[in-house]
Amino acid sequence: MSAVARARKEDTSAEGSFSLALSVNGNERELLVEPHESLAEVLRNRLDLRGTKIGCNSGECGACTVVLDGSAVCSCVTLACTVPGSHVTTIEGLERDGVLDRLQEAFVEHGGFQCGFCTSGMIMSAHALLSQTKHPTEDEIRVALQGNVCRCTGYAQILQAVRAAAAGA
């Protein structure tokens, strides 16, 4: 926490003090945030996009993963004020006209989650991978998902889901 942030009144329900313009799921958004607010907090608390989860809140579990300008990042350790003008995609941005994305379909079809708390982040990591690499190898899939912790599945059905989504592409 910076000294500047510490000095400021912090209340996410109130107007922030820093102007931020960015694109979220294809919509241009302009809002006031506090300098210390993370992208995850802004998405969840100011934009009501609660599909992005906060687990460890320290960039270690990956539950908060979103796609930022094409790359998967932990939104909990990304300060919102450092990403003006960026394009952010969250789990809510994958569905098109009520039709699930192939990754979302594949995760349901192959049991790629149990409790589902890591799922948004897991799917966003996989989405970033498939956007860049159409037919990833097994190793490429594992590397792409290495920052996303899942305790429920042991990863087997997640890997299967990503493979299936890639094959169906």
Binding site: E92, E95, Q104, V108
Partner: peptide
Amino acid sequence: LNRLDGEGKVTGAAVYASD
């Protein structure tokens, strides 16, 4: 068969206690 709570969990619509 696909689980009943599947769609909500892959779209981010499922509400957890922390939400």
